[in-house]
Design a binder for these strands. Structure first.
Lengths: 227, 227
DNA sequence: GCAAAAGTGTTCTTTCTACACCCATGC
DNA sequence: GCATGGGTGTAGAAAGAACACTTTTGC
Protein backbone atom coordinates (compact mmCIF):
# COMPACT_ATOMS: atom_id res chain seq x y z
CA UNK A 1 0.00 0.00 0.00
CA UNK A 2 1.61 3.23 -1.16
CA UNK A 3 0.91 6.53 0.45
CA UNK A 4 1.36 10.03 -0.78
CA UNK A 5 4.48 10.34 1.27
CA UNK A 6 6.17 7.26 -0.16
CA UNK A 7 5.38 7.13 -3.86
CA UNK A 8 6.72 4.21 -5.84
CA UNK A 9 8.14 6.05 -8.82
CA UNK A 10 8.73 3.08 -11.09
CA UNK A 11 5.05 2.21 -10.96
CA UNK A 12 4.21 5.06 -13.29
CA UNK A 13 7.32 5.32 -15.44
CA UNK A 14 5.64 3.88 -18.48
CA UNK A 15 2.15 5.15 -17.89
CA UNK A 16 0.87 7.63 -20.41
CA UNK A 17 -1.37 10.34 -19.04
CA UNK A 18 -3.47 12.24 -21.53
CA UNK A 19 -6.62 14.28 -21.75
CA UNK A 20 -9.27 13.72 -24.40
CA UNK A 21 -12.20 15.98 -25.14
CA UNK A 22 -15.57 14.94 -26.46
CA UNK A 23 -16.59 18.11 -28.30
CA UNK A 24 -20.29 18.26 -29.06
CA UNK A 25 -21.97 20.71 -31.34
CA UNK A 26 -25.30 20.99 -33.06
CA UNK A 27 -26.14 21.65 -36.68
CA UNK A 28 -29.36 21.40 -38.63
CA UNK A 29 -29.00 17.64 -38.94
CA UNK A 30 -28.52 17.02 -35.22
CA UNK A 31 -25.88 16.47 -32.59
CA UNK A 32 -22.32 16.25 -33.88
CA UNK A 33 -19.04 15.22 -32.32
CA UNK A 34 -15.55 16.27 -33.41
CA UNK A 35 -13.16 13.40 -34.23
CA UNK A 36 -9.75 13.29 -35.77
CA UNK A 37 -8.52 10.58 -38.14
CA UNK A 38 -5.71 8.20 -37.32
CA UNK A 39 -3.67 6.06 -39.68
CA UNK A 40 -4.63 5.25 -43.27
CA UNK A 41 -6.28 8.28 -44.92
CA UNK A 42 -8.28 5.93 -47.16
CA UNK A 43 -9.87 3.93 -44.33
CA UNK A 44 -9.20 6.01 -41.27
CA UNK A 45 -9.90 5.05 -37.71
CA UNK A 46 -11.18 8.00 -35.72
CA UNK A 47 -10.23 9.12 -32.24
CA UNK A 48 -11.13 11.84 -29.79
CA UNK A 49 -9.05 14.99 -29.92
CA UNK A 50 -6.59 14.94 -27.05
CA UNK A 51 -3.09 15.65 -25.88
CA UNK A 52 -0.54 14.49 -23.38
CA UNK A 53 -0.72 16.44 -20.14
CA UNK A 54 2.23 18.77 -19.86
CA UNK A 55 4.23 18.76 -16.65
CA UNK A 56 3.30 22.31 -15.86
CA UNK A 57 -0.35 21.91 -16.80
CA UNK A 58 -3.42 21.13 -14.75
CA UNK A 59 -5.72 18.53 -16.23
CA UNK A 60 -8.28 21.29 -16.69
CA UNK A 61 -5.75 23.50 -18.42
CA UNK A 62 -4.76 20.72 -20.77
CA UNK A 63 -8.34 20.01 -21.68
CA UNK A 64 -9.08 23.68 -22.12
CA UNK A 65 -6.01 24.12 -24.28
CA UNK A 66 -7.02 21.17 -26.40
CA UNK A 67 -10.55 22.48 -26.82
CA UNK A 68 -9.27 25.88 -27.87
CA UNK A 69 -6.87 24.29 -30.31
CA UNK A 70 -9.61 22.36 -32.08
CA UNK A 71 -12.52 24.79 -31.81
CA UNK A 72 -10.84 28.18 -31.89
CA UNK A 73 -12.92 29.20 -28.88
CA UNK A 74 -11.52 30.59 -25.65
CA UNK A 75 -14.48 30.23 -23.33
CA UNK A 76 -16.73 27.22 -23.66
CA UNK A 77 -18.59 24.77 -21.56
CA UNK A 78 -16.08 22.16 -20.46
CA UNK A 79 -16.54 19.53 -17.79
CA UNK A 80 -14.63 16.48 -16.68
CA UNK A 81 -16.44 13.31 -17.68
CA UNK A 82 -14.55 10.25 -16.49
CA UNK A 83 -11.04 8.83 -16.27
CA UNK A 84 -10.41 5.67 -18.20
CA UNK A 85 -7.56 3.54 -16.99
CA UNK A 86 -8.27 -0.09 -17.71
CA UNK A 87 -5.11 -2.06 -18.42
CA UNK A 88 -6.82 -3.86 -21.28
CA UNK A 89 -7.72 -0.76 -23.27
CA UNK A 90 -4.33 -0.49 -24.97
CA UNK A 91 -1.83 -3.26 -25.54
CA UNK A 92 1.36 -1.29 -26.04
CA UNK A 93 1.35 0.81 -22.92
CA UNK A 94 -0.39 1.88 -19.75
CA UNK A 95 -2.84 4.49 -20.97
CA UNK A 96 -4.75 6.75 -18.61
CA UNK A 97 -7.18 9.08 -20.35
CA UNK A 98 -8.89 11.82 -18.42
CA UNK A 99 -11.86 12.55 -20.64
CA UNK A 100 -13.72 15.87 -20.69
CA UNK A 101 -16.80 16.86 -22.55
CA UNK A 102 -17.43 20.20 -24.16
CA UNK A 103 -20.35 21.96 -25.77
CA UNK A 104 -19.75 24.64 -28.36
CA UNK A 105 -22.03 26.73 -30.53
CA UNK A 106 -21.26 25.78 -34.10
CA UNK A 107 -21.57 29.34 -35.39
CA UNK A 108 -18.60 30.45 -33.33
CA UNK A 109 -16.25 27.53 -33.95
CA UNK A 110 -13.53 27.75 -36.54
CA UNK A 111 -14.53 26.29 -39.86
CA UNK A 112 -11.50 24.10 -40.33
CA UNK A 113 -10.14 22.23 -37.33
CA UNK A 114 -6.48 21.17 -37.22
CA UNK A 115 -5.28 17.59 -37.84
CA UNK A 116 -8.11 17.00 -40.32
CA UNK A 117 -10.56 16.72 -37.44
CA UNK A 118 -14.17 16.93 -38.55
CA UNK A 119 -17.72 16.60 -37.33
CA UNK A 120 -19.63 13.34 -37.23
CA UNK A 121 -23.30 12.80 -36.45
CA UNK A 122 -23.62 10.90 -33.19
CA UNK A 123 -26.12 8.52 -34.78
CA UNK A 124 -23.75 7.59 -37.58
CA UNK A 125 -20.27 7.20 -36.16
CA UNK A 126 -17.32 5.84 -38.16
CA UNK A 127 -14.80 3.22 -37.05
CA UNK A 128 -13.43 4.28 -33.70
CA UNK A 129 -10.15 3.72 -31.87
CA UNK A 130 -10.06 1.39 -28.86
CA UNK A 131 -12.84 2.16 -26.39
CA UNK A 132 -13.75 5.50 -27.99
CA UNK A 133 -17.23 4.14 -28.75
CA UNK A 134 -17.88 3.43 -25.08
CA UNK A 135 -16.61 6.85 -24.11
CA UNK A 136 -18.87 8.54 -26.64
CA UNK A 137 -21.87 6.53 -25.49
CA UNK A 138 -21.23 7.56 -21.91
CA UNK A 139 -20.70 11.21 -22.86
CA UNK A 140 -23.99 11.23 -24.74
CA UNK A 141 -25.82 9.63 -21.84
CA UNK A 142 -24.41 12.20 -19.48
CA UNK A 143 -25.31 15.06 -21.81
CA UNK A 144 -28.91 13.85 -22.09
CA UNK A 145 -29.13 13.32 -18.40
CA UNK A 146 -27.69 16.73 -17.66
CA UNK A 147 -30.17 18.35 -19.96
CA UNK A 148 -33.00 17.04 -17.84
CA UNK A 149 -32.03 18.76 -14.67
CA UNK A 150 -29.79 21.63 -15.63
CA UNK A 151 -29.55 24.34 -18.17
CA UNK A 152 -26.82 23.07 -20.40
CA UNK A 153 -28.72 23.41 -23.70
CA UNK A 154 -27.76 27.05 -24.11
CA UNK A 155 -24.13 26.24 -24.50
CA UNK A 156 -24.81 24.89 -27.97
CA UNK A 157 -26.60 28.01 -29.15
CA UNK A 158 -25.52 31.52 -30.11
CA UNK A 159 -25.75 34.21 -27.44
CA UNK A 160 -29.23 35.16 -28.57
CA UNK A 161 -31.71 32.51 -29.56
CA UNK A 162 -35.43 32.04 -30.09
CA UNK A 163 -37.46 29.68 -27.96
CA UNK A 164 -38.07 27.52 -31.01
CA UNK A 165 -34.35 27.19 -31.57
CA UNK A 166 -33.87 26.24 -27.93
CA UNK A 167 -36.65 23.68 -28.11
CA UNK A 168 -35.19 22.23 -31.26
CA UNK A 169 -31.84 21.87 -29.46
CA UNK A 170 -33.46 19.93 -26.66
CA UNK A 171 -35.32 17.74 -29.12
CA UNK A 172 -32.23 16.94 -31.13
CA UNK A 173 -30.25 15.96 -28.07
CA UNK A 174 -33.01 14.03 -26.32
CA UNK A 175 -34.17 12.48 -29.56
CA UNK A 176 -37.84 13.14 -28.88
CA UNK A 177 -40.47 15.76 -29.65
CA UNK A 178 -41.53 18.14 -26.91
CA UNK A 179 -44.78 20.07 -26.54
CA UNK A 180 -44.30 23.68 -27.52
CA UNK A 181 -46.52 25.25 -24.89
CA UNK A 182 -45.27 23.10 -22.05
CA UNK A 183 -41.69 23.66 -23.08
CA UNK A 184 -42.10 27.42 -23.00
CA UNK A 185 -43.92 27.38 -19.70
CA UNK A 186 -41.20 25.38 -18.01
CA UNK A 187 -38.18 27.07 -19.48
CA UNK A 188 -39.57 30.51 -18.62
CA UNK A 189 -40.64 29.46 -15.14
CA UNK A 190 -37.15 28.10 -14.48
CA UNK A 191 -36.00 31.72 -14.73
CA UNK A 192 -32.74 31.00 -16.45
CA UNK A 193 -33.33 32.92 -19.65
CA UNK A 194 -34.49 36.45 -20.24
CA UNK A 195 -35.90 38.22 -23.29
CA UNK A 196 -33.75 40.62 -25.26
CA UNK A 197 -35.04 43.54 -27.33
CA UNK A 198 -34.01 41.74 -30.50
CA UNK A 199 -35.94 39.69 -33.00
CA UNK A 200 -34.99 37.07 -35.50
CA UNK A 201 -36.54 37.62 -38.92
CA UNK A 202 -37.34 34.56 -40.97
CA UNK A 203 -39.99 33.01 -43.09
CA UNK A 204 -42.94 33.58 -40.80
CA UNK A 205 -43.60 35.88 -37.89
CA UNK A 206 -40.40 37.21 -36.34
CA UNK A 207 -39.24 35.45 -33.17
CA UNK A 208 -38.32 37.22 -29.95
CA UNK A 209 -34.76 36.45 -28.99
CA UNK A 210 -33.73 35.37 -25.51
CA UNK A 211 -30.44 35.01 -23.74
CA UNK A 212 -29.11 32.89 -20.92
CA UNK A 213 -29.21 34.90 -17.71
CA UNK A 214 -25.56 35.40 -16.79
CA UNK A 215 -26.35 35.46 -13.07
CA UNK A 216 -28.05 32.08 -13.38
CA UNK A 217 -24.76 30.38 -14.19
CA UNK A 218 -23.57 30.04 -10.61
CA UNK A 219 -25.88 27.45 -9.14
CA UNK A 220 -28.29 26.01 -11.62
CA UNK A 221 -30.61 24.22 -9.26
CA UNK A 222 -33.13 23.67 -12.02
CA UNK A 223 -33.48 20.02 -11.41
CA UNK A 224 -35.64 17.97 -13.68
CA UNK A 225 -36.38 20.63 -16.20
CA UNK A 226 -37.65 17.92 -18.53
CA UNK A 227 -38.63 14.71 -16.85
CA UNK B 1 -0.57 19.09 -29.58
CA UNK B 2 0.26 15.56 -28.67
CA UNK B 3 -1.72 12.65 -30.00
CA UNK B 4 -2.02 9.11 -28.78
CA UNK B 5 0.37 7.98 -31.46
CA UNK B 6 3.15 10.41 -30.50
CA UNK B 7 3.22 10.66 -26.72
CA UNK B 8 5.74 12.95 -25.12
CA UNK B 9 7.21 10.61 -22.55
CA UNK B 10 9.13 13.18 -20.54
CA UNK B 11 5.90 15.07 -19.85
CA UNK B 12 4.81 12.43 -17.38
CA UNK B 13 8.10 11.21 -16.00
CA UNK B 14 7.63 12.97 -12.73
CA UNK B 15 3.90 12.80 -12.49
CA UNK B 16 2.56 10.70 -9.66
CA UNK B 17 -0.60 8.81 -10.42
CA UNK B 18 -2.55 7.52 -7.45
CA UNK B 19 -6.02 6.48 -6.46
CA UNK B 20 -7.74 7.66 -3.31
CA UNK B 21 -10.95 6.33 -1.86
CA UNK B 22 -13.52 8.26 0.15
CA UNK B 23 -14.96 5.47 2.27
CA UNK B 24 -18.28 6.37 3.85
CA UNK B 25 -20.05 4.44 6.53
CA UNK B 26 -22.84 5.10 8.97
CA UNK B 27 -23.01 4.60 12.71
CA UNK B 28 -25.47 5.72 15.32
CA UNK B 29 -23.97 9.18 15.39
CA UNK B 30 -24.21 9.74 11.65
CA UNK B 31 -22.18 9.59 8.49
CA UNK B 32 -18.51 8.73 8.93
CA UNK B 33 -15.50 8.82 6.65
CA UNK B 34 -12.31 6.79 6.97
CA UNK B 35 -9.09 8.83 7.13
CA UNK B 36 -5.53 7.92 7.87
CA UNK B 37 -3.07 10.07 9.80
CA UNK B 38 0.02 11.57 8.30
CA UNK B 39 3.07 12.99 10.09
CA UNK B 40 3.18 13.90 13.77
CA UNK B 41 1.14 11.42 15.84
CA UNK B 42 0.45 14.18 18.39
CA UNK B 43 -1.06 16.64 15.92
CA UNK B 44 -1.70 14.55 12.84
CA UNK B 45 -2.87 15.76 9.48
CA UNK B 46 -5.36 13.37 7.93
CA UNK B 47 -5.56 12.14 4.37
CA UNK B 48 -7.73 9.87 2.29
CA UNK B 49 -6.66 6.23 2.06
CA UNK B 50 -4.99 5.66 -1.29
CA UNK B 51 -2.20 4.00 -3.17
CA UNK B 52 -0.04 4.45 -6.23
CA UNK B 53 -1.48 2.76 -9.27
CA UNK B 54 0.53 -0.33 -10.13
CA UNK B 55 1.69 -0.77 -13.70
CA UNK B 56 -0.39 -3.89 -14.16
CA UNK B 57 -3.47 -2.48 -12.43
CA UNK B 58 -6.56 -0.79 -13.77
CA UNK B 59 -7.63 2.30 -11.89
CA UNK B 60 -10.72 0.39 -10.79
CA UNK B 61 -8.59 -2.50 -9.59
CA UNK B 62 -6.35 -0.20 -7.60
CA UNK B 63 -9.29 1.49 -5.95
CA UNK B 64 -10.94 -1.83 -5.23
CA UNK B 65 -7.72 -3.20 -3.78
CA UNK B 66 -7.33 -0.15 -1.60
CA UNK B 67 -10.92 -0.40 -0.36
CA UNK B 68 -10.46 -4.07 0.50
CA UNK B 69 -7.22 -3.30 2.29
CA UNK B 70 -8.83 -0.72 4.54
CA UNK B 71 -12.30 -2.21 5.01
CA UNK B 72 -11.67 -5.93 4.85
CA UNK B 73 -14.59 -6.21 2.44
CA UNK B 74 -14.37 -7.85 -0.97
CA UNK B 75 -17.56 -6.59 -2.59
CA UNK B 76 -18.72 -3.08 -1.88
CA UNK B 77 -20.24 -0.12 -3.60
CA UNK B 78 -17.38 1.69 -5.33
CA UNK B 79 -17.66 4.41 -7.94
CA UNK B 80 -15.26 6.82 -9.55
CA UNK B 81 -15.80 10.34 -8.27
CA UNK B 82 -13.43 12.76 -9.95
CA UNK B 83 -9.83 13.13 -10.99
CA UNK B 84 -7.88 15.91 -9.37
CA UNK B 85 -4.88 17.17 -11.29
CA UNK B 86 -4.34 20.80 -10.51
CA UNK B 87 -0.67 21.78 -10.58
CA UNK B 88 -1.12 23.90 -7.48
CA UNK B 89 -2.39 21.11 -5.24
CA UNK B 90 1.06 19.85 -4.33
CA UNK B 91 4.32 21.78 -4.41
CA UNK B 92 6.83 18.96 -4.59
CA UNK B 93 5.53 17.05 -7.56
CA UNK B 94 2.90 16.62 -10.22
CA UNK B 95 0.14 14.78 -8.41
CA UNK B 96 -2.81 13.23 -10.20
CA UNK B 97 -5.36 11.65 -7.88
CA UNK B 98 -8.17 9.58 -9.28
CA UNK B 99 -10.66 9.66 -6.44
CA UNK B 100 -13.33 7.02 -5.86
CA UNK B 101 -16.06 6.91 -3.31
CA UNK B 102 -17.27 3.84 -1.49
CA UNK B 103 -20.13 2.95 0.81
CA UNK B 104 -19.76 0.14 3.30
CA UNK B 105 -21.99 -1.27 6.00
CA UNK B 106 -20.20 -0.69 9.28
CA UNK B 107 -21.21 -4.02 10.74
CA UNK B 108 -19.22 -5.89 8.12
CA UNK B 109 -16.06 -3.80 8.08
CA UNK B 110 -13.01 -4.87 10.01
CA UNK B 111 -12.78 -3.29 13.40
CA UNK B 112 -9.21 -2.07 13.10
CA UNK B 113 -8.09 -0.59 9.80
CA UNK B 114 -4.40 -0.62 8.84
CA UNK B 115 -2.13 2.43 9.03
CA UNK B 116 -4.06 3.72 12.05
CA UNK B 117 -6.89 4.79 9.79
CA UNK B 118 -10.08 5.58 11.68
CA UNK B 119 -13.55 6.96 11.28
CA UNK B 120 -14.42 10.64 11.50
CA UNK B 121 -17.86 12.24 11.53
CA UNK B 122 -18.34 14.25 8.36
CA UNK B 123 -19.63 17.21 10.38
CA UNK B 124 -16.53 17.31 12.55
CA UNK B 125 -13.49 16.76 10.36
CA UNK B 126 -9.92 17.12 11.62
CA UNK B 127 -7.05 18.94 9.88
CA UNK B 128 -6.81 17.64 6.35
CA UNK B 129 -4.02 17.28 3.82
CA UNK B 130 -3.94 19.57 0.77
CA UNK B 131 -7.30 19.71 -0.98
CA UNK B 132 -8.76 16.74 0.90
CA UNK B 133 -11.43 19.00 2.38
CA UNK B 134 -12.65 19.99 -1.08
CA UNK B 135 -12.68 16.38 -2.19
CA UNK B 136 -14.70 15.33 0.84
CA UNK B 137 -17.17 18.15 0.31
CA UNK B 138 -17.67 17.09 -3.27
CA UNK B 139 -18.04 13.42 -2.34
CA UNK B 140 -20.67 14.29 0.22
CA UNK B 141 -22.54 16.44 -2.25
CA UNK B 142 -22.52 13.64 -4.76
CA UNK B 143 -23.66 11.10 -2.19
CA UNK B 144 -26.60 13.27 -1.15
CA UNK B 145 -27.48 13.97 -4.70
CA UNK B 146 -27.30 10.30 -5.64
CA UNK B 147 -29.54 9.39 -2.78
CA UNK B 148 -32.29 11.52 -4.26
CA UNK B 149 -32.58 9.70 -7.52
CA UNK B 150 -31.09 6.29 -6.96
CA UNK B 151 -31.08 3.52 -4.43
CA UNK B 152 -27.68 3.92 -2.91
CA UNK B 153 -28.82 4.04 0.71
CA UNK B 154 -28.88 0.26 1.07
CA UNK B 155 -25.17 -0.02 0.59
CA UNK B 156 -24.64 1.39 4.05
CA UNK B 157 -26.94 -1.12 5.73
CA UNK B 158 -26.69 -4.80 6.57
CA UNK B 159 -28.30 -7.26 4.14
CA UNK B 160 -31.55 -7.20 6.06
CA UNK B 161 -32.88 -3.98 7.48
CA UNK B 162 -36.09 -2.49 8.79
CA UNK B 163 -37.80 0.43 7.10
CA UNK B 164 -37.06 2.59 10.11
CA UNK B 165 -33.36 1.83 9.80
CA UNK B 166 -33.49 2.69 6.12
CA UNK B 167 -35.32 5.93 6.81
CA UNK B 168 -32.83 6.81 9.50
CA UNK B 169 -30.02 6.24 6.98
CA UNK B 170 -31.61 8.65 4.55
CA UNK B 171 -32.16 11.20 7.28
CA UNK B 172 -28.59 11.02 8.51
CA UNK B 173 -27.16 11.49 5.05
CA UNK B 174 -29.57 14.17 3.89
CA UNK B 175 -29.48 15.90 7.25
CA UNK B 176 -33.26 16.34 7.45
CA UNK B 177 -36.27 14.56 8.87
CA UNK B 178 -38.57 12.66 6.53
CA UNK B 179 -42.22 11.77 6.95
CA UNK B 180 -42.59 8.13 7.94
CA UNK B 181 -45.69 7.33 5.92
CA UNK B 182 -44.57 9.11 2.79
CA UNK B 183 -41.15 7.53 3.04
CA UNK B 184 -42.62 4.04 3.20
CA UNK B 185 -45.04 4.69 0.38
CA UNK B 186 -42.31 5.86 -1.94
CA UNK B 187 -39.64 3.35 -1.10
CA UNK B 188 -42.09 0.48 -1.51
CA UNK B 189 -43.57 1.89 -4.70
CA UNK B 190 -40.09 2.21 -6.17
CA UNK B 191 -40.00 -1.58 -6.05
CA UNK B 192 -36.35 -1.87 -5.12
CA UNK B 193 -36.73 -3.64 -1.79
CA UNK B 194 -38.70 -6.72 -0.80
CA UNK B 195 -39.84 -8.10 2.55
CA UNK B 196 -38.06 -11.06 4.12
CA UNK B 197 -39.62 -13.50 6.56
CA UNK B 198 -37.42 -12.16 9.33
CA UNK B 199 -38.07 -9.70 12.10
CA UNK B 200 -35.87 -7.50 14.22
CA UNK B 201 -36.69 -7.63 17.90
CA UNK B 202 -36.08 -4.55 19.97
CA UNK B 203 -37.62 -2.29 22.55
CA UNK B 204 -41.06 -1.97 21.01
CA UNK B 205 -42.99 -3.90 18.44
CA UNK B 206 -40.75 -6.08 16.25
CA UNK B 207 -39.92 -4.69 12.81
CA UNK B 208 -40.28 -6.59 9.59
CA UNK B 209 -36.97 -6.84 7.78
CA UNK B 210 -36.49 -6.05 4.12
CA UNK B 211 -33.72 -6.59 1.63
CA UNK B 212 -32.52 -4.85 -1.49
CA UNK B 213 -33.91 -6.68 -4.52
CA UNK B 214 -30.84 -8.15 -6.23
CA UNK B 215 -32.43 -7.87 -9.70
CA UNK B 216 -33.00 -4.16 -9.13
CA UNK B 217 -29.28 -3.46 -9.16
CA UNK B 218 -28.87 -3.38 -12.92
CA UNK B 219 -30.57 -0.15 -13.95
CA UNK B 220 -31.87 1.83 -11.04
CA UNK B 221 -34.00 4.30 -12.90
CA UNK B 222 -35.63 5.43 -9.68
CA UNK B 223 -35.02 9.04 -10.31
CA UNK B 224 -35.93 11.51 -7.65
CA UNK B 225 -36.85 9.11 -4.97
CA UNK B 226 -36.78 11.98 -2.52
CA UNK B 227 -37.17 15.38 -4.04
C1' DG C 1 -50.80 -1.94 31.90
C1' DC C 2 -47.47 1.01 30.11
C1' DA C 3 -43.50 2.35 27.49
C1' DA C 4 -41.53 2.09 22.90
C1' DA C 5 -41.18 1.55 18.29
C1' DA C 6 -43.94 -0.35 14.08
C1' DG C 7 -47.30 0.17 11.05
C1' DT C 8 -51.14 2.24 8.24
C1' DG C 9 -54.98 6.15 4.68
C1' DT C 10 -56.98 10.28 3.39
C1' DT C 11 -57.32 14.99 1.95
C1' DC C 12 -55.50 18.90 -0.12
C1' DT C 13 -52.19 21.16 -3.00
C1' DT C 14 -49.06 21.28 -6.63
C1' DT C 15 -47.30 19.79 -10.82
C1' DC C 16 -47.65 17.50 -15.27
C1' DT C 17 -49.83 16.50 -19.63
C1' DA C 18 -52.60 16.85 -23.53
C1' DC C 19 -54.44 19.70 -26.75
C1' DA C 20 -56.01 23.88 -31.01
C1' DC C 21 -56.25 28.27 -32.47
C1' DC C 22 -54.89 33.25 -33.59
C1' DC C 23 -50.81 36.43 -34.79
C1' DA C 24 -47.21 38.91 -37.35
C1' DT C 25 -44.47 39.06 -41.14
C1' DG C 26 -42.58 38.26 -46.29
C1' DC C 27 -43.75 37.25 -50.65
C1' DG D 1 -54.20 37.01 -49.29
C1' DC D 2 -51.73 33.09 -48.20
C1' DA D 3 -47.89 30.51 -46.52
C1' DT D 4 -44.80 30.21 -42.66
C1' DG D 5 -43.28 29.86 -38.24
C1' DG D 6 -44.38 32.50 -33.51
C1' DG D 7 -47.07 32.81 -29.78
C1' DT D 8 -50.75 31.76 -26.12
C1' DG D 9 -54.48 29.07 -21.90
C1' DT D 10 -57.20 25.56 -19.77
C1' DA D 11 -58.97 21.29 -17.88
C1' DG D 12 -58.17 16.70 -16.27
C1' DA D 13 -54.72 13.44 -14.26
C1' DA D 14 -50.94 12.35 -11.41
C1' DA D 15 -47.85 13.07 -7.85
C1' DG D 16 -46.40 15.22 -3.57
C1' DA D 17 -47.09 16.97 1.21
C1' DA D 18 -49.23 17.22 5.53
C1' DC D 19 -51.11 14.89 9.17
C1' DA D 20 -52.71 11.15 14.01
C1' DC D 21 -53.97 7.05 15.66
C1' DT D 22 -53.77 1.79 16.34
C1' DT D 23 -50.77 -2.39 16.90
C1' DT D 24 -47.43 -5.44 18.83
C1' DT D 25 -44.05 -6.60 21.78
C1' DG D 26 -40.94 -6.56 26.45
C1' DC D 27 -40.86 -5.38 30.97
Amino acid sequence: MQSLSTPETNAILSTHLEVRVVIFSLDTRGLQVLLRPLADPQHPIWELPGQAVGLDQSLDESASHCLTHYSGLQESYLEQLYTYGDVKRCHEKRLVSVVYFALIPLDKAIFKSPDHACWHAVEKLPDLLLDTGDILAYALRRLRYKLEYSAVGFELLPDNFSLSELQSTYEKILGEKLDKRNFRKRILKADIIEPTPHQRLGEGRPARLYRYRPDAVAEVKTRRLFP
